[in-house]
């Protein structure tokens, strides 16, 4: 080997090693393999216990600084009324913020339909919030890495990183995302991340009067929420989308979507 060949070979070697190291800087395998969390946040909603008071929506808006007078909300309540003729009526005036105080169903455009007691077959108040899906479609579509799933399963939005393109809002099958009127970025329920990380209940769970809403840890087998999900008949919304939603419902009927 000549001196020239030696230098050429070492230069190639250094470049190859540098490139390989650079690639591993971009994709750090230790990050993928590191700490698998022993927490998986889930939600359990007992639809029978929801009285439609909307105090959870009020608390959520105040806790998370979502403008109170705007129609958007991180959580909301839908009312489903099934009549004996097989029809399904649903509304969610003001996201349920002021509760449901009348039997009149809001049809929009200032029109209402009153449903008489004798016509009602069954009815439900359905609290809705982010499902913190196991396969979140909103995260997959984010072009800048501004929305992501934390180790405990909660999907968060990085307000500094979000460019406001709105792909995630379109991608969510549950319509839980919206533009924050003040920050101009994508906004969603994050199970009150500042509260649950301090060991507190979410604002909506705390405000809920009859205990319809419950927060749990699916990786703790002794958690009462986990026990219910594992042993009782529970329901998730829009299972057919394959997003594996982690908000479970009990005492709900098939008509609710």
């Amino acid at each position: 080997m000549t001196r020239r060949d030696f230098f050429k070979l070492s230069l190639k070697g250094v470049i190859t090693a540098g490139l390989a190291k650079g690639l591993f800087e971009l994709v750090k395998p230790e990050h993928i393999l590191a700490s698998t969390s022993n927490i998986r946040r889930v939600f359990l909603i007992d639809a029978h216990e929801c009285c439609g008071c909307g105090l959870c929506v009020k608390a959520c808006k105040l806790e998370n600084e979502v403008p109170y007078e705007s129609s958007v909300s991180r959580t909301w309540i839908e009312r489903y009324v099934m009549t004996k003729d097989g029809k399904v009526h649903a509304d969610a005036t003001n996201a349920g913020r002021d509760g449901f105080t009348s039997t009149k169903i809001d049809l929009g455009m200032g029109k209402y339909k009153d449903i008489k007691k004798e016509d009602i077959d069954k009815a439900f108040f359905v609290p809705k919030l982010c499902n913190q899906c196991e396969n979140p479609s909103c995260v997959q579509v984010c072009p800048v890495g501004a929305t992501y799933q934390a180790a405990d399963g909660v999907v968060l939005v990085d307000r500094k990183w979000c460019i406001g393109c709105g792909y995630c809002i379109m991608a969510c099958p549950y319509g839980v995302r919206f533009f924050h009127p003040k920050y101009r970025t994508a906004e969603k329920c994050n199970f009150c991340y500042h509260r649950i990380s301090k060991g507190l209940k979410t604002a909506c769970v705390q405000a809920c009067v009859f205990g319809s809403r419950k927060l749990g840890n699916l990786k703790d087998p002794n958690d009462p929420v986990t026990k219910t999900i594992m042993t009782e008949r529970v329901w998730v919304l829009k299972e057919e989308y394959g997003t594996k939603p982690q908000v479970y419902y009990t005492n709900l009927s098939m008509e609710v979507r």
Partner: peptide, 12 residues
């Protein structure tokens, strides 16, 4: 919010 009576048999 709670005390307006609504005749919904399957809820509290």
């Amino acid at each position: 919010r709670c005390h307006s009576y609504l005749p919904y048999p399957t809820t509290i």
